[in-house]
Design a protein around this nucleic acid. Structure first.
Lengths: 189, 189
DNA sequence: CTTGTAAACTAACAAGTGTTAGTTTGTTTC
DNA sequence: GAAACAAACTAACACTTGTTAGTTTACAAG
C-alpha cells in the first residue's frame, strides 16, 4: 500500500468538501479547517485552489479514457462491451465517490485544462455512441435513437456516485449485474 | 400571455447564470450585468440572493409533487403511470431548462427552505418507488431491485435539462416515446 | 553540533462579496 | 400640477476571498 502524501491527502479531503457544497462554495479556509491546519499552510503542498480541482478531475477523466480504450481494443460483442463499460463506471465511481462529484458538477470551473477535459469527455461519448451504433447495425441492439440510449445509460452511470454511498454493504459485482440487466433489458416483463 | 414582472425576469436570468456556473459562483454583480443594471438595483425587486434560489427551486419542486399526485390518483396500470411520469419530466424540464439545473445542482445552498425541499424530494422518490413495487407485485414489471430501477430511471429523467438543449427541433412527444421505450423495454433486441 | 527539509505558523494584502441607505428619474393617477 | 410609485442610480459598509511573505518548529542526515 503506497503511503499517501500530504498533497494527496489535501486533494482527497478537498474532493469530499467539493462534493457537499461544490467547488466555488468551498473556501481555502474551509479546507484548512477540515485538515486541521491554517489556510496559508495549504500552500506548502499545493499551488492553488485550481490545482486541486485539476488534480481531482483530470486524473479521473483519464481513467475513463484509458478504460474505454481497453474495451474498444477487444473483440467482444457490443452487448459485452456495454457490460464492461458498466463495470468500468462502477469500479471507478466506487473507488472515488468524492472525485466523481467534482467531475460531474465542477468541471466548468477548470481554468487551464478545461478544453483538454472537454475533449476527453466528448471523445468518450463518441466512442460510447460508436459501440451503440455498431450494435444496432449488427442487430444486437434494438433500432432506437442511439443518442437517447447514450444519454440515458451514460447519465445513469455518471450519477453512480450519488447512489452508491446510500447503500450499505453494497456488492459491486451485484450492482454491475443489476445495472446491466436494467439498462440493457429494461424493466418490462 | 401573462406579462412577466421585473422580479420574474430577474429570477429567469439568474437561473440561466446559475445553470452555467452554479449558485455560489454567480455574484449579484454578474446578475446585475446580465440584466443591464447595477447590483444594488436588484434589491428593488428581490430581497436577497437566497430568495432567488428559493423562487427557482421550490416552485419547480412543487410542480413535480403536484404532477406525481395527479398520476397517483388515476387507475392506470403501473406501466402507464411510468409513461406519465416520463411525460411529466419532459414537460417540466423543457419548459424550465435553467431552473432544472438549479434544482439538481444547487439545492444544497437553500437556507430557509432546505428541509422543505428535501421532504418534497424524498416523498417524490417514495411515491415513484411505490409505483415500481406495485408493478413488480402485479407482474407488470420484471422482478429486479426496485431501488436500482428507480435510481436509473429517475437519474435519466432528472438530467433531461442537460440533454434537451443540445437537440435542435426536438419533438417533445417523440422524446417521451423514445425514452419510454428505452427506459421500459431496454435496448436489447 | 550543524545543516537541510517538511510542514506548520502569524500577519497582511488587494480584490471581491452581499447588502443597505439615501437619492434621482421618469411615468402614471387624481 | 401634485402625489405616488416603479425602478434605476451612487456610495459605502463589513466581511470574506485566494494568496503571499516571512518566520518558527520539529526532526532526520551528515
Amino acid at each position: 500500500m503506497k503511503q499517501e502524501t500530504r498533497k494527496e491527502e489535501i486533494v482527497r479531503v478537498a474532493a469530499k468538501l467539493f462534493k457537499e457544497k461544490g467547488y466555488s462554495a468551498v473556501t481555502m479556509r474551509d479546507l484548512a479547517k477540515a485538515m486541521g491546519i491554517k489556510a496559508a499552510s495549504l500552500y506548502n503542498h499545493i499551488n492553488s485552489k485550481q490545482d486541486i480541482l485539476n488534480a481531482i478531475i483530470i486524473s479521473l477523466a483519464e481513467d475513463f479514457t484509458e478504460g474505454m480504450s481497453m474495451i474498444q481494443s477487444t473483440n467482444d460483442s457490443c452487448i459485452n462491451k456495454l457490460k464492461k463499460i458498466i463495470e468500468l463506471h462502477v469500479k471507478i465511481s466506487s473507488q472515488n465517490i468524492y472525485g466523481m462529484a467534482s467531475l460531474n458538477n465542477d468541471w466548468m470551473h477548470l481554468e487551464g485544462k478545461l478544453s483538454y477535459y472537454q475533449k476527453l469527455r466528448t471523445d468518450y461519448e463518441e466512442d460510447f455512441r460508436a459501440i451503440l451504433k455498431d450494435g444496432i447495425i449488427s442487430g444486437e441492439i434494438v433500432d432506437a435513437k442511439p443518442d437517447v440510449m447514450l444519454f440515458s445509460i451514460l447519465t445513469t452511470l455518471r450519477s453512480l456516485y450519488i447512489w452508491i454511498p446510500k447503500k450499505e454493504d453494497l456488492d459491486l459485482e451485484d450492482l454491475s449485474n443489476t445495472l446491466n440487466q436494467i439498462l440493457i433489458k429494461g424493466i418490462n416483463k
